[in-house]
């Protein structure tokens, strides 16, 4: 559907387009995404786990009709895993083959692009066509400082030099979205290159809208009660608060169990979908949830 790749002209347009792809962005997030697109700057998304940071990137790719290229960061990730690496085994095989054929070879042949393993960052720079791509650099806080510095270099001019091949420059800048769970502070130099947006837990209405968009099979009453329950749960003293992702899982679990409204026995049985920490689970299933449930039911 090539028509879909038309860039949204206003923030409202973008918000509506995201909605069509079942992503509900509040005004602040929509403004940030819109500006990231217009200014060609990377956008740093932070927020509690499960509030839809990664989903935002996926939804943007869907809106732009372009490819989503995802780089998942982890501790110890380096340029050869993020940018490119030479396919040594293949080069070796190629040499052997030429040798067996009794053919001569030149070194440049060995460094042809077919021996290049393109990792996400290079893929994002290389695209030929004009369709805007989305580069998602997920959980940047998990990588280490060295990698952050390296990333900074790439994000500064969107070009890299491969000594054997030459310079690769992005024809169209991809929309770059970085996400962080704040397990460590990012370097100032990186954050200053980026636009910033903090995604908070949505309020009741926003979360209900998300549930209805993402779990259309859920009955109205179930969606309302479940959303209200999770909202109340977040106010409890918990180590790990349930995110929107957990709300959706829960609603879907209850739909799978043919529920059309919350019921006590099923709350108890499915609390594990919402609370992934043993201490939290013990605290809530020891009776705290009944108070929450009473609050929901009386509405």
């Amino acid at each position: 559907m090539p028509n879909e790749s038309v860039l949204p002209a206003t923030i409202d347009d973008l918000q509506r387009a995201l909605l069509q792809h079942a992503y509900i962005a509040d005004r602040g997030l929509a403004t940030s995404l819109f500006l990231a697109l217009k200014l060609g700057r990377p956008l740093l998304l932070e927020g509690e786990p499960g509030v839809g940071k990664t989903e935002a990137a996926k939804a943007m790719a869907a809106v732009l009709g372009g490819e989503l290229i995802r780089l998942q960061c982890y501790e110890g990730i380096d340029a050869s895993q993020a940018l490119y690496a030479w396919d040594y085994p293949r080069q070796l095989m190629h040499l052997r083959y030429l040798e067996a054929q009794g053919e001569a070879f030149s070194e440049t042949e060995l460094y042809a692009s077919r021996f290049l393993l393109k990792r996400p960052l290079l893929q994002a720079l290389e695209g030929e066509d004009e369709t805007p791509r989305v580069l998602l650099i997920d959980e940047i806080d998990r990588s280490d400082d060295e990698f952050e510095a390296f990333l900074l270099e790439i994000l500064a001019d969107f070009q890299i030099t491969i000594p054997e091949l030459g310079v690769v420059r992005a024809q169209t800048r991809p929309l770059v979205i970085l996400t962080s769970n704040r397990t460590r502070a990012l370097h100032d130099a990186l954050t200053r290159r980026c636009l910033y947006c903090w995604i908070d837990y949505p309020d009741f209405d926003a979360e209900l809208a998300i549930v209805q968009a993402r779990a259309p099979r859920a009955a109205e009453l179930l969606a309302r009660q479940a959303t209200g329950f999770v909202q109340a749960l977040r106010a409890e003293e918990l180590y790990k608060r349930p995110g929107v992702a957990e709300t959706l899982d829960w609603v879907q679990a209850l739909v799978a169990l043919d529920q059309t409204a919350l019921e006590e026995e099923w709350i108890q049985a499915t609390l594990g979908v919402l609370l992934k920490d043993q201490a939290d689970l013990a605290h809530i299933s020891d009776g705290a949830w009944q108070g929450l449930w009473a609050g929901i039911r009386s509405r």
Binding site: R27, G28, L44, L186, R192, C194, Y196
Partner: peptide, 23 residues
Amino acid sequence: KFIDINNRCDFYFALRAAFVTRR
């Protein structure tokens, strides 16, 4: 340049995106 600066809401969010770097 890309937003309607008479819309206070957008004006605020645009500046926030540009100037804020952490929660």
